[in-house]
C-alpha cells in the first residue's frame, strides 16, 4: 500500500515541480518603438505646473547669482 502511494506521489511531485518552470507572467511589457512604457514619474506632471517653475526660478536667482 505504502509503495503504491510512493509510486503515485513521487511522479506527481516531480510533474508539479517541472510545471512550475512553465509559469508565464502576464505582466510582460510589450515594446513599441519610441514609446516609454515604464513607471509614471509624478515629477513629469509636477514640472508642467507654472508655480513649480516659478519656485525653481526664484531658487536659481537666490542661490546661483553673484552677490
Amino acid at each position: 500500500m505504502k509503495t503504491r502511494f510512493l509510486f503515485v506521489a513521487i511522479p506527481l511531485v516531480a510533474v508539479l515541480l517541472l510545471l512550475t518552470g512553465c509559469y508565464e507572467s502576464r505582466d510582460v511589457t510589450l515594446h513599441d518603438a519610441g514609446v516609454y512604457k515604464g513607471q509614471t514619474d509624478p515629477l513629469v506632471e509636477m514640472s508642467a505646473d507654472p508655480a513649480y517653475q516659478e519656485r525653481l526660478r526664484e531658487r536659481l536667482l537666490m542661490v546661483q547669482t553673484d552677490r
Partner: peptide
C-alpha cells in the same frame, strides 16, 4: 525606450526597463 523627459526638459530613465 527607457528614457522619458519631464515638461521642463530633464532627461530621466527607468532602471526597471
Amino acid at each position: 525606450d527607457c528614457f522619458y523627459t519631464t515638461a521642463d526638459g530633464v532627461v530621466l530613465h527607468d532602471k526597471d526597463l
